[in-house]
Nucleic acid binder design. Sequence first.
DNA 1: CTGAAAGCGCTTACAG
DNA 2: CTGAAAGCGCTTACAG
Lengths: 366, 366
Amino acid sequence: MVTIREIAREAEVSISTVSHVLNTPGGGGKASIETRKKVLAVARKHNYAPSIRGKALREGKSYTIGLLGQLGIYDYIAANSLYGASRIFRDAGYGIELTPAQLPPPQPDPLKLPGVLPPVPEPTALTVEEYQEHLREAVRRLLQRGVDGILILEAVSDANREIFTEISKQLPVVKLLFGSSGIPSIPSSYVDPTMIAKLGGEYLCRLGHREIVLLGSRPEVREILDRYLAGRGLRLRDGNMFPLCKSFEDGRQALRRILRERPETTAVFCYNDTNAAGVLHEALRLGIRVPDEISVLGVNNLEICEQLYPQLTTIAMPIIGQGEAAAELLLELINGRKAGDRVLPAQLIERESCSAPRTHERITTT
Amino acid sequence: MVTIREIAREAEVSISTVSHVLNTPGGGGKASIETRKKVLAVARKHNYAPSIRGKALREGKSYTIGLLGQLGIYDYIAANSLYGASRIFRDAGYGIELTPAQLPPPQPDPLKLPGVLPPVPEPTALTVEEYQEHLREAVRRLLQRGVDGILILEAVSDANREIFTEISKQLPVVKLLFGSSGIPSIPSSYVDPTMIAKLGGEYLCRLGHREIVLLGSRPEVREILDRYLAGRGLRLRDGNMFPLCKSFEDGRQALRRILRERPETTAVFCYNDTNAAGVLHEALRLGIRVPDEISVLGVNNLEICEQLYPQLTTIAMPIIGQGEAAAELLLELINGRKAGDRVLPAQLIERESCSAPRTHERITTT
DNA sequence: CTGAAAGCGCTTACAG
DNA sequence: CTGAAAGCGCTTACAG
């Protein structure tokens, strides 16, 4: 890369003048038109753009955002919302610093060849202390690299709340996804859980379902849905049996348990598409017809929805949009303004996995 | 962040001495033990680590790697191999610069709410010229940010070969995934296609299949597999009908066409898990039993394999390992050494979608 | 053994 | 209208 010094020499002016011309787009009325032209011509000729490194040092900021989170780039939703954020940051002249603060991915290498590849640590095996150590180390690196703000891509929990609160005193911090941060100094961008609960409840009621089970939602969603159903003389039928049902495998087991303990169920409201995929998978295995014998509703609208059998009806949310909102929040904070939560809407996507209940046709159970 | 100047003042030494003590871990025999102790104590007290920004400017390097690619973070394989790379870079003191060079994701926002969210451009609609402009802009930003090297996460094509070649003259560049780069100055890390072809061919032959169809592989894989089969008196049965079969939807259509035009087929070798998922989906729809009536073999070992019905037998590759290898290559180049391609092994993962052929039991077609 | 000085690429008062 | 100077945080010869 050519430096400002070389541009100055070739344009036969001082570096001050070069800097000035380049930083006053309109002309500013300072440099003479001739000088201006000459400098711009030389700069264009060399395709010169001021080095961020020099600028950063001088201005005391880095034009870089640090990314902090375990999920990070390894999850469809996180990745796509991050793309949304990256567009906003890019347009504002900011880069995203990825690596040094990145926690391990949620799973080990799909293929381990013993003796050929180094073993990948199993992050699920991390103790709380190890996790916290990991997080602190990540923050330390981010600070050392002088990021201007931090984007958290992780759910706030007892294990990290204190650490996050601590950083937010030193630096602008915004959280992306996973609901509100619960920390006043850390605004968040997320999708309205009330809307998700109501959209799902309303849809299933409209189809005529009265025996509905909810899989793996946060407590507040459950409460909202319960209240909505109560308004129609209904209630959730699962007795809160499945608060932790999240994964594909969880979904499979949940369906078996539903068939055993709640055979009257006509609709399963799965709070993510992944456990919904597990429910569908197990239904296929057991010969339970979806949606004829049981309706399945997901949340997220992942790519996988169209690839499942039957295709999954789900509640979509603006994934890229959440990232954009978070980036806007963080830029607000960096520019010294106040910022509050950004709550985005959801939308129902009808496919094949829900229909009116036809309970009495059920053929198989177990 | 506290600076070296404050450490120096508090330890009552010059900044030179602070820098020296911190940069000679062993003691180096230069500073006195007392001074050393004092400096280290103060540094530790403040949790001081030298700012990368200052160091970078002085040393003429940024300790940052730029990421260039369309897929980037949005794909399971790319994301996980990137995680592998990030670990290596982090341990070497390098960060990864994400945003400004990132091209759009392969697909639009799963949810578009008109009037609520800004529209997301459809990258598939990019013309070659737009794509090239995008790429050049990304490179320009990366250079402006002074990255020490570039990691390319994209297949080399006629549209970008020249641009990539050009960058590799200015900066160390390494390509990750998608086979060899075909550009001498850009080494690559990838999985051995010969091994994939042979593993698949050998496995299907061992099961007794003689009527095999190949879906969506690159030509060289086809050739290798053809040669392997020829050694056993067999040949591929598809007449190269499906070179471009990549997506889920492609897989669905391919199965219908196979049943129509190549009904004798007993095994489908899908060159990725995604089109294999399409084949399985369509088989379910049509009532074709897998593997009883037709065996399906994938490549990649994506998460989805275990979630399909039946679970997909596939050829796995070291995904994180490929990223690690690429990072090592790039560090070699940055440190002024030569580096060649790194070719990694594959491995068969048996699940449920392949068995010995039982063609005569087929019940349905269409 | 320790510190003053130069310099990486830039911007911003300030002087002329 | 233009340029010399200071300084962002660091490291590295060099002098003492």
